[in-house]
Write a protein that binds this DNA or RNA. Structure first.
Length: 456
RNA sequence: GAGGUUGUAGCUCAGUUGGUUAGAGCGCUGGUUUGUGGUACCAGAGGUCGCGGGUUCGAGACCCGUCUCCCUCCCCA
């Protein structure tokens, strides 16, 4: 035997039953996206490196899978960069293409390229795999699916309201018992930086504050000091650590805190609008929480920021999203505001598996199997399968006339719902035996009765 | 990218301080005579103990390297 086969780390194979479960998740998400007026698009799995690089920050660039140039293009390798140890530039000269890292940046590219064919606001959804050269961990893969819905070309906050409803609808439909939609606004974070007098350290401050629930107040202060934030500024920021209570109470506290920051107050106003509208509409299973410490790494968000966490499961956020006022600006089309969300299908899949939340019929089973009693009988069954398939019944004939025990065992493993037995007797009588594999009940019926039975 | 951990049949694991032909359960295959599965009984197949090197008379067990899994950080879905 050759060496045992393997797949790259952070990737997975899916068996038929697993695919059935994943299809259920994708279908649930798709159908909700559709009811909110989103239409699907697709983009290539790889893009030009120049499209992706520099869009996700330094960390993100490191996680982008590069596609090595081949043939003559190998000659484009920048050997000078290698000599001068500029490895990043050398790597870029070796790879003109790269696997997509998310669906948002390719979408921005798509919008700019097809701007004349689109009517705005443009709403699309996209369900495709993305790749990250990350170190695999629980709920973290190198290949995984994102399910994105975005709108570009409108700055209306009604879309933020819609997205909150979509989170609630999808996760409720998937039977997830409890989950929290965390919401914040990047303008509030800007306001905090402004009030503290450290506007240029916005990113450092938000990243540090984001860790509050993980490292605690002291941890955050330590990180702020390390990043060179002044003690004075930290003194101004620290009251934020005490913010709590209901969403209304938090808003009130933040209003006071940000009273001298125009941008901060704008953020509060936007957030208040979304929260109020959401209260008007109501939520099925979701809880919504204003979380000042919610930051999210991506540098392109400018307004609302979302993140969804499932209760009682140890798993990173299963959904994220937010508003980006000028994403397409990176590709030369400015002035288009966008807002979007993403469902992490693979994490949702893991959560559903962990909580065992699949509906009963989510498997790759077969509806009807014809037992094989010999050539003559099988030939008759083949004719029947053709008729059944025309009315949409999935069925098949067992391939050989082996002993019944074996055929039934096969039916069992395939999770077959019904087995039809047509032997010599039945052929002459025109009566078929149909056995319900779950109840064990077996009854005789004619061919027309059989077709009728499965039609209903 | 940094640190830690794990790796024995298809799966879940046992395997005493290194010592003969490496075990169990589940699963799988066949059987328990006539056309009936999910239960029972019997039998069988299946492992160069992640991979490569080293120490030793002898290594699944010890050492080094490497890959993988999982975990912490980072970042995120």
């Amino acid at each position: 035997m050759a060496q045992k086969p393997a797949i790259p780390k952070g990737t997975r194979d899916f068996l038929p039953d697993e695919v059935a479960r994943r299809t259920y998740i994708f279908d649930t998400i798709k159908s909700v996206f559709k009811t909110y007026g989103f239409a699907p698009i697709e983009t290539p799995s790889f893009e030009l490196s120049s499209t992706l690089l520099g869009k996700y920050g330094e960390e993100g660039d490191r996680l982008i899978f590069r596609i090595l140039n081949s043939g003559e293009k190998m000659k484009k390798a920048d050997l000078d960069a290698l000599k001068s140890e500029n490895l990043a530039r050398f790597a870029n000269s070796l790879a003109e293409k790269a696997l997509r890292y998310d669906l948002t940046v390719p979408f921005a590219r798509f919008v700019v390229q097809h701007q004349n064919d689109l009517s705005f606001p443009f709403k699309r959804y996209q369900i495709q795999p993305v790749w990250r050269a990350d170190r695999p961990q629980h709920g973290r893969y190198q290949e995984f699916y994102q399910c994105d819905a975005d709108v570009v070309g409108s700055d209306s906050l009604l879309y933020e309201v819609d997205f909150v409803q979509i989170f609630d609808q999808v996760l409720t439909n998937l039977q997830i018992p409890g989950f929290t939609i965390k919401i914040n606004n990047r303008k509030i974070l800007s306001g905090i930086a402004e009030v503290s007098g450290e506007s240029d350290k916005l990113i450092d401050i938000t990243v540090a504050i984001d860790k509050l629930d993980k490292v605690g107040e002291e941890g955050v202060i330590k990180e702020l000091l390390e990043k060179g934030v002044s003690e004075n500024a930290i003194g101004i920021i620290s009251p934020l650590f005490q913010i709590g209570g209901s969403n209304e109470e938090r808003l009130a506290q933040m209003k006071t805190f940000l009273k001298d920051s125009e941008i901060g107050l704008k953020g509060i106003e936007e957030l208040e609008f979304v929260l109020n509208q959401t209260t008007e509409l109501g939520l099925e299973r979701a809880e919504i929480e204003f979380d000042v410490t919610l930051a999210r790494g991506l540098n392109y968000y400018t307004g609302a920021i979302f993140e969804v966490k499932v209760h009682d499961v140890k798993m990173g956020s299963i959904c994220g999203g937010g508003r980006y006022d000028d994403l397409t600006g990176l590709f030369g089309l400015s002035g288009l505001s966008g807002v979007g969300i993403s469902f992490g299908a693979d994490r949702i899949y893991d959560v559903l598996n962990e909580l065992d939340l699949y509906p009963e019929d989510t498997n790759a089973g077969l509806t009807l199997l014809f037992a094989n009693f010999g050539d003559k009988e099988a030939a008759y069954c083949m004719k029947l399968t053709k008729k059944l398939r025309q009315i949409g019944v999935d069925c098949e004939v067992y391939p050989s006339a082996v002993k019944m025990q074996k055929q039934f065992k096969y039916a069992d493993n395939r999770k077959v719902k019904f087995v039809a037995l047509i032997g010599d007797d039945e052929l002459t009588k025109g009566q078929l035996q149909v056995k319900n594999m779950e109840s064990g009940e077996q009854k005789a019926m004619t061919e027309t009765e059989l077709l009728q039975f499965f039609k209903g």
